[in-house]
């Protein structure tokens, strides 16, 4: 009887597997509720949206370099970012040259997202993005530092030899013959260099590109605080951080951007704007509430147990 545990001791000794199960149940149940959680976009995401949608910063029909450095390991955050980004680029007829330096799986994963967004457009009777005409896949380049250096020094030489097959042709042709890269020979020829990354390749690009071209980054929550330093110093023109950044971007796509002293940036109201970001956002909030409750209960239980002793 003397060894019987108090409620406080029992609370402190909850098996971690019970907490894991509780977390998974709460996350899963939340996913079935389609709720648009209200968001107030932060300045880094607003600047990113302005950079991507404002016609002065990125003229309609121009070409950007899109470096996709994420795989399934960060799908939770990076897939939503990539989807939101591609929706904006495709709606504005922005051409893009796709490349990866972080992981050999990254080009395949990026192509899958392009295919999914194309299917979404097809279902809405919108024009599908065509390889060669609208985008080219430059593929995977090992050694992020060396590749970024080469791209900064001479883009045309860095990606020389890469080929893509135009639709209706059996022969792969040099990517610089495509409408996407026909007017691009150096990195300064593109209005924006975009990096969707699940690793630190954004840092490598900042240090190697050295401000030659406006740079935008869509990073994970892990990289977010570090990337904000570069945003504050103007080395990154716009940033979307983690799932929060995705939800903010989706919200801006739906509502547009109005800022005092700056031109209004249009919305894409009526289109599919809310995607993976808003689908996960409620679940993220409920998980965070569970964590806060667990931390508070654990600490209260510890203090109460100590007092009793």
């Amino acid at each position: 009887m003397a060894n019987e545990k108090t409620i406080w001791e029992k609370l402190q000794a909850i098996d971690r597997r019970v907490l894991y199960t509780l977390l998974m149940v709460i996350a899963t149940v939340s996913l079935f509720f389609k709720v648009n959680v209200p968001t107030k976009p932060g300045q880094p995401t607003k600047d990113l949206y302005r950079l991507l949608v404002d016609d002065e910063a990125l003229p309609e029909g121009s070409t950007v370099i899109l470096q996709s450095d994420w795989t399934q390991s960060t799908r939770g955050e990076s897939a939503g970012q990539m989807e939101a980004l591609l929706r904006i680029l495709m709606r504005r007829n922005i051409k893009f040259a796709l490349l990866s330096v972080a992981d050999p799986q990254a080009p395949l994963v990026a192509r899958n997202v392009i295919r999914a967004i194309n299917l979404e457009r097809k279902a809405k009777n919108q024009r599908e993005y065509q390889v060669w005409e609208d985008y080219v896949n430059l593929g995977y380049f090992p050694n992020a530092e060396g590749t970024s250096n080469a791209i900064a020094a001479n883009f045309k030489t860095a990606v020389a030899g890469r080929k893509e097959t135009p639709p209706g042709s059996a022969t792969p042709l040099d990517v610089f013959q495509s409408p996407v890269l026909s007017k691009v020979s150096k990195v300064e020829d593109v209005p924006v260099y975009i990096n969707v990354t699940g690793s630190k390749t954004s840092n490598i690009l900042i240090e190697r590109l050295g401000g030659r071209v406006p740079f935008a980054a869509l990073v994970t929550g892990v990289m977010g605080p570090e990337t904000l330093n570069y945003y504050q110093s103007g080395q990154v023109k716009g940033v979307a951080i983690g799932l929060n950044g995705v939800a903010e971007m989706e919200s801006l796509m739906e509502k547009g951007l109005v800022e005092t002293g700056k031109p209004e940036v249009k919305s894409f109201a009526g289109e599919t704007n809310y995607g993976r970001g808003m689908a996960y956002y409620l679940a993220l909030h409920t998980c965070l509430v569970l964590m806060i409750v667990a931390v508070v209960v654990g600490n209260v239980a510890m203090v109460a147990a100590r007092k009793k002793k």
């Binding site: 998974m24 939770g76 799932l243 998980c287 964590m291």
Partner: peptide, 27 residues
């Protein structure tokens, strides 16, 4: 305080990755 903020952001990432897996399995 800075490390705490960074850790909070990291925790959010880990939660998101788990939520994504649950989305994949159940949705």
């Amino acid at each position: 305080i800075g490390f705490g903020a960074i850790f909070g952001s990291t925790v959010m990432t880990r939660f998101t990755l788990m939520i994504d897996r649950m989305y994949f399995v159940f949705i």
